[in-house]
Amino acid sequence: MAARRHTTTRRPVLAAAAAFLLPPNPVAAAERLAFDDLYSGWSVMGASFSPRLLALVGQEAALRGYMAPPLKAEADFFVLAREPMALCPFCSSDADWPVDIVVVYLRRQAQPTDPGTRIEVVGRVETGSWTDPDSGFVSQIRLRDARFRPL
């Protein structure tokens, strides 16, 4: 636990330093989450959201990952995955998404990035089962009003 506290106190300092060096971006203000921070418990009967994620609901957070190939051409909605999505049609299926994906709703439409490019997304954290009305895609964690930048 000491290590965790140490990390969280250092991060804003590092982010502030980066913001000073790099062109201004909104990432500096948001608390950074990692994919490992989203769920605190895993079982066959389902996963549980971590207290850290739940504490951020309604607030802005930053999350790094890879944009899955978009479900529709105009990318105001995409799936953020921990690893680049390169699944094969016959060893996996379209029902076979990783469990810990995050759905991102962008503030403005944007061109999709390469699925192999790591990106950082900042958005307002939302949890709970939600079915996208256009695609029917079901998600448990979302980042709303989001923007992103390649890393």
């Binding site: 009967m45 389902g46 549980s48 089962s129 079901v138």
Partner: peptide
């Protein structure tokens, strides 16, 4: 593959309905 058995509201579920197949 329990993801396809759990009702939609459960984190980790892939179902699109509220049925608990277990």
């Amino acid at each position: 593959g329990s993801a396809s058995f759990l009702p939609q509201g459960t984190p980790g579920s892939r179902r699109r309905d509220g049925r608990n197949m277990i």
